[in-house]
Design a protein around this nucleic acid. Structure first.
Lengths: 375, 375
DNA sequence: AGCGTTTACGCAAGGGTTTGCGCATTGTTG
DNA sequence: CAACAATGCGCAAACCCTTGCGTAAACGCT
């Protein structure tokens, strides 16, 4: 710990070789004899040599770090993405550094600056609603890929979701079930994602010739607390909505909390659709119908893209191959479960509405058995 | 992007100053005139200078990076910890780099090695069940703090939970409710945490003069899938357990999944206690009784400890102050909700068992209102 | 023997920053 | 007025590694 780190020089001295030779031996340079390589590696192992990443970074003016800037790691979507991407990058000798902005532009800037200082090889970002100009300026200085949310004025690849289609899909499902009074809880329209999701909601209503009632639309920060209070408002409305779409992870959580607090029976009294890839979605309300994102595909695409930008450490050619396979725009699908039912069907759990756009196998959608096999 | 990064030298040349002066001006060194400082800062701003972290790290032989090695970021406990710690560290100019091991010792080693190469200032780890010797050797080379799980043979601070007390607390709750056939799903006893939790289970049974039935104990990898199959096994038992404790985040998730799949009614047919800080715990089964950890306290302690090791960037004295306030061993508490009920009370939701060890205000424990205010 | 080629290694530059020390210039005191 | 402190700044070393180029030996060939 306190003892100075062992350097190439130390090994060189011990073996009476030059630093250059030691360096090359460790990097498996062709022009070094097998015997020397062996001696060097052996010595390195013995003295516990560990290369100095800083010196490397300094030399080649860029590090092998890759940044991932997310608003919130407790959101399972980002957690999964981060997890997956980090694993993939690690395989190729890149470290992912995760930055959490809490949707605060100041914090965001600090993180981006830090990545810049670290000479990160590339960075993936899900920007805050109103990024500071400085943030954009800094981001422009390295290969950037924007995830989910996109800001204009920033070049580079983008990985987005067809939010509008997603929202329309959910709406279509509800409309098919006969719902007309459908409320919507969404993130701020300053977010590109929030904007498009709302657009989908509006478009779907338009198509069905239903007017958009502003009292049925709640837009705000993507926090559970906001969704909770929005839901409370809906509960007080006179022609009460018969269905609600919460279009965000936190928003879904908040809406669910409120529903639980108020002991609203789902789907008998209210059909509810959530958004995101929460693992708990199948556990509540006998299964919460969700707008689900293809996280794995997206994570794969993101990882490959980032690897394309990163310095190829192990010499393997920059495999841009994967990039062609994966799209830039991903389409979500609706996981129909039991939190949505035909309007007016107050007869316990509803059945027969699995004919919709659900792509995945419906096996996890539970049938309305009443007798538990447990007893 | 391609244009070479601007360096101190560039600024120096432009201003006809020496590099040293520019450096000092930016770091607010006392022996530089205000005028010069201003000129330098102005120029730096204008040309978009951003300091080279690698050069710094190289110079002072240690970076301002702090590592956090966790098994799984989708576990809300670690997500919250990471989130909190990262925020705190960022305030002090440290970057946290998150490493996810997936409980794989190989991956763990890779990450730890990378942190070593990056000359991280300190690292917090939640080790895998069987860390590679090399991993331990590397960890010994910097200030380490072990979180939740501890391995012997590794010095440094530890941040643990009184797992045994936690398990006993949960058991006590169930025993008080009249349960005798209590099953237990736990993580591998190779994990210090798994070991102590199990010890608590066993001890509580011993105190109550109940023999430990091996068929009621399932130990395995801390994965939801394991808990799920363990739960399946329990369901097949002849004297079926009337209560189950799942002692881990993933394990709780898995157990809950199984319960949902099997349509077991909770708490009427089975009392269930989970473990961790899942935000969804209040949403399922009308509220899942949980062994909850004081995450925030722990995160605070961790952050302060790490800051104590980190180089004080902004010159502020290494505030080891916080450290005295916070313990090394944290005591969990039981959040009693509605997934546990007295044995034999098949009368819907149970009431009146809020007299137990629940520390927090019981306000979120829902009363058995049957009529929803919604309708 | 002479020549070209391959193999094995060393020299030294360069990359950006920090910092101890030295050198002026200006201001202060005996 | 001399001695002295304070102020403001530059020189150069050090941090560790990579890599282009140079050198020297060994080898195969005519």
């Amino acid at each position: 710990m306190i003892p100075r780190d062992v350097t190439l020089g130390d090994i060189a001295r011990a073996l009476e070789l030059s630093i250059a030779t030691v360096s090359r031996a460790l990097r498996d340079h062709p022009h070094i004899s097998a015997r020397t390589k062996h001696r060097v590696r052996d010595a390195a192992e013995r003295v516990g040599y560990v290369s100095n990443a800083a010196a490397n970074t300094l030399h080649r003016a860029r590090s092998s770090l890759v940044g991932f800037v997310v608003p919130d790691i407790e959101n399972e979507f980002y957690a999964t993405m981060a997890s997956f991407v980090a694993a993939r990058l690690a395989q190729r000798g890149c470290q992912m550094v995760l930055a959490i902005t809490q949707d605060d532009p100041r914090i965001e800037l600090d993180h981006v600056r830090a990545m810049r200082e670290a000479r990160a090889a590339a960075v993936a970002v899900t920007l805050t609603a109103a990024p500071l100009p400085e943030t954009i300026r800094l981001l422009a200085q390295f290969p950037t890929v924007q995830v989910v949310r996109i800001a204009d004025g920033l070049a580079g690849r983008t990985l987005v979701v067809d939010e509008e289609a997603a929202a329309m899909m959910a709406m279509r499902h509800l409309l098919d079930l006969g719902h007309r009074d459908i409320a919507y809880i969404g993130g701020s329209t300053q977010l590109s994602s929030g904007q498009h999701r709302l657009a989908g909601y509006v478009a779907a209503l338009g198509k069905a010739d239903i007017a958009v009632e502003s009292k049925y639309v709640a837009l705000g920060p993507p926090r559970a607390s906001f969704a909770r209070s929005a839901m409370m408002q809906f509960a007080k409305l006179s022609p009460r909505p018969t269905a609600v779409i919460a279009s965000g992870y936190e928003l879904t959580l908040g809406a669910a909390q409120c529903v639980c607090d108020l002991r609203i029976r789902v789907p008998q009294e209210l059909s509810l659709i959530g958004y995101g890839n929460a693992r708990w979605s199948e556990l509540i309300f006998g299964g919460l119908t969700m707008i689900a994102l293809p996280v794995e595909d997206m994570a794969f695409a993101l990882a490959e893209t980032l690897l394309g930008y990163a310095p190829t450490v192990d010499g393997s050619a920059t495999s841009t191959v994967g990039l062609d396979h994966c799209a830039s725009q991903f389409v979500p699908h609706l996981e129909v479960r039991n939190s949505t039912s035909p309007l007016g069907s107050s007869i316990g759990l509803s059945i027969g509405h699995e004919t919709t756009h659900a792509k995945g196998p419906g096996r996890r959608t539970r049938s309305p058995k009443l007798v538990s096999p447990w007893t």
